Amino acid sequence: MNPRISTTLNKEDVELIFKEVNRIWFQAGIRFELECIDNLQALEIPEKRWYIKDRNWVKAAIPTEHFSATAIDVCFVKDMGPNGFFYGEPVVVCEKPEYHPVAGGSDNPVARVAAHELGHVLFLQHRQEHTNLMASGKNGILLNAQEIKDARRRALEILGKKPES
């Protein structure tokens, strides 16, 4: 088992992270429910080489056969280059993210990264206004009116409901 991939977070940590994720997403009227919390054993993969991107190396170690068919899977890893990523299942979040604090931002950087990556699930793109949730490498949590509208529409689509016109 590679120590860089193995998270130190426990069930209570994840529940607290999602409490903050939902506080952030409250501004859009969106709530993420925890279906279950499992510890997955990472697949045995070769040691990371300098020319392999962390996200590709981490993704190769995640046992996808355990993913839910009806939920958004979120995996926490101890250490990786990006703070998080989402390129299709799963959402991956580093438990030790690097970021620059901004006024009014989240005090829980792991939750903020999780909320940011869930923004990508909802088709939101990076936006470099420092206080915005979709800014890279910051702890901002705000969404503008268009992002809220777009995120709500995508959330309804994921739930199989018809979005409002």
Rank of each mutant, 00 (worst) to 15 (best):
residue 1 M to E: 11
residue 2 N to T: 05
residue 2 N to C: 05
residue 2 N to A: 07
residue 5 I to A: 04
residue 6 S to D: 06
residue 6 S to A: 15
residue 9 L to A: 05
residue 9 L to N: 06
residue 10 N to W: 02
residue 10 N to R: 12
residue 10 N to P: 01
residue 11 K to T: 13
residue 12 E to A: 12
residue 14 V to G: 03
residue 17 I to W: 04
residue 20 E to G: 00
residue 20 E to Y: 09
residue 21 V to Q: 02
residue 22 N to D: 04
residue 23 R to S: 13
residue 24 I to N: 11
residue 25 W to A: 01
residue 26 F to Y: 11
residue 26 F to K: 15
residue 26 F to L: 10
residue 27 Q to G: 00
residue 28 A to T: 11
residue 31 R to E: 12
residue 32 F to Y: 15
residue 32 F to G: 00
residue 35 E to Y: 04
residue 35 E to L: 05
residue 35 E to G: 03
residue 37 I to S: 05
residue 37 I to Q: 06
residue 37 I to H: 04
residue 38 D to T: 08
residue 39 N to C: 03
residue 39 N to S: 14
residue 42 A to R: 09
residue 42 A to M: 05
residue 42 A to Q: 10
residue 44 E to D: 15
residue 44 E to V: 11
residue 48 K to V: 02
residue 49 R to L: 08
residue 52 I to L: 10
residue 52 I to S: 00
residue 54 D to K: 02
residue 55 R to L: 04
residue 57 W to G: 08
residue 60 A to I: 05
residue 61 A to W: 04
residue 62 I to Y: 03
residue 63 P to T: 03
residue 63 P to F: 04
residue 66 H to N: 10
residue 66 H to T: 01
residue 67 F to N: 07
residue 67 F to K: 06
residue 67 F to C: 06
residue 69 A to L: 10
residue 73 D to W: 04
residue 74 V to Q: 07
residue 75 C to N: 06
residue 76 F to K: 02
residue 76 F to A: 07
residue 77 V to S: 02
residue 82 P to Y: 05
residue 83 N to R: 04
residue 85 F to G: 03
residue 88 G to Q: 09
residue 89 E to L: 09
residue 89 E to K: 14
residue 90 P to K: 03
residue 90 P to T: 08
residue 90 P to V: 00
residue 90 P to Q: 06
residue 90 P to N: 01
residue 92 V to T: 07
residue 93 V to N: 08
residue 94 C to N: 15
residue 96 K to A: 10
residue 99 Y to D: 04
residue 100 H to Y: 10
residue 101 P to E: 12
residue 105 G to I: 11
residue 107 D to R: 13
residue 108 N to P: 00
residue 111 A to I: 03
residue 112 R to T: 02
residue 114 A to E: 05
residue 114 A to W: 05
residue 116 H to A: 09
residue 116 H to N: 09
residue 118 L to W: 09
residue 119 G to F: 10
residue 120 H to G: 10
residue 125 Q to K: 15
residue 126 H to D: 14
residue 127 R to W: 14
residue 127 R to H: 12
residue 128 Q to C: 02
residue 129 E to Q: 12
residue 129 E to A: 11
residue 130 H to L: 08
residue 133 L to I: 09
residue 133 L to K: 11
residue 134 M to F: 13
residue 136 S to T: 14
residue 136 S to D: 14
residue 136 S to N: 13
residue 136 S to A: 12
residue 137 G to M: 06
residue 138 K to T: 15
residue 140 G to T: 10
residue 140 G to C: 09
residue 142 L to E: 13
residue 145 A to D: 15
residue 146 Q to M: 05
residue 149 K to P: 00
residue 151 A to K: 01
residue 152 R to H: 03
residue 152 R to W: 01
residue 153 R to N: 07
residue 154 R to V: 15
residue 154 R to L: 04
residue 154 R to E: 15
residue 155 A to K: 11
residue 155 A to P: 01
residue 156 L to A: 10
residue 159 L to K: 12
residue 161 K to N: 11
residue 165 S to V: 10
residue 165 S to L: 12
residue 165 S to H: 13
